[in-house]
Amino acid sequence: MITQAVHISGDKDKRVNLMFFADGYTMQELGKFESDVNKLKDDIISPHGAMGHVADLLNIWATFVPSEHSGIGTHDQPLPGAALGLYRPGPELRAVYVKHPEIARAACKWFREGGAGDGDCDQAILLGNDPLYGGLGGEFTIITASELNGPLVLRHELGHSLIPVGEEYDGGYAYSGVNSDKITYLNDLKWKNYLANPGETRIEDSRMAVQAYPWHDLDIGDYNSTFMSFNDFASHTKSYPTALLRTSLSSIPHPSHVNLTLNGRPLDLKNYFPTEWQNSLDRRWLDISLLDGLELGENVIRVSLTEEGRKEKAGQGGKMITSLEVIEYGGQGRFNHTLGHIGAYRTFSMNGKVTLRPTNEECLMRNVTYPRFCPVCADALRHNLLKKISRKRVTMR
Rank of each mutant, 00 (worst) to 15 (best):
R382K: 09
E139W: 14
E113G: 08
A209N: 02
L154M: 06
V165G: 10
A62C: 07
I183R: 14
E276N: 11
D287I: 08
Y175W: 02
Y25K: 10
S225P: 02
P266Y: 06
H341E: 12
D217N: 07
F348R: 05
R334W: 05
H383K: 13
H216I: 07
I142Y: 10
D287E: 13
H69S: 10
I220K: 15
G343Y: 12
E34P: 03
S250M: 04
G49R: 10
N149M: 12
A243Y: 02
G293I: 00
A209C: 00
D36F: 13
L57D: 06
T242Y: 01
D120K: 14
G159K: 12
R283L: 15
F273G: 02
R346W: 02
E102S: 01
M19T: 02
D232Q: 09
L294W: 04
S256M: 12
G31W: 11
I321G: 01
T369Q: 14
K238V: 01
V165S: 13
A5T: 03
V65L: 06
S235R: 13
G85I: 05
I301F: 02
F20T: 00
L294G: 04
L218G: 04
D282A: 03
R207D: 04
Y370K: 13
H383Q: 14
D76P: 01
G315Y: 05
Y25H: 02
M208F: 01
S9P: 00
W191R: 03
Y223C: 07
D188W: 06
R397H: 14
I143V: 11
V368P: 15
K190A: 12
Q77V: 11
L386K: 15
R112Q: 15
P131I: 10
V354G: 03
E204T: 00
G24C: 11
L136P: 06
Q278P: 03
L162F: 05
N231F: 14
E204S: 02
E298D: 05
P266E: 10
D268A: 15
G309V: 02
V96R: 07
D205M: 14
S206N: 01
V303P: 00
S206F: 03
S349F: 13
W277M: 13
A243F: 06
M365N: 09
G293L: 00
P266K: 00
K32E: 15
L154C: 05
G119T: 09
Y25M: 03
S70W: 04
R105M: 03
I103V: 09
R382V: 08
V153S: 08
Y25L: 10
Q77I: 10
M228P: 00
V354R: 04
R112M: 05
R246V: 14
E34T: 14
D170Y: 03
E328D: 03
G166H: 09
H53E: 04
L281N: 10
V178C: 11
A209T: 01
N271S: 06
N187D: 15
L364H: 11
I125A: 05
T74V: 15
G52N: 04
E362V: 03
K109Q: 15
D292T: 08
K12S: 02
P274F: 05
G81L: 09
G297N: 05
K190V: 08
K32C: 07
V153C: 08
S289Q: 13
S225G: 00
G73F: 04
H156R: 09
L339A: 13
W191L: 00
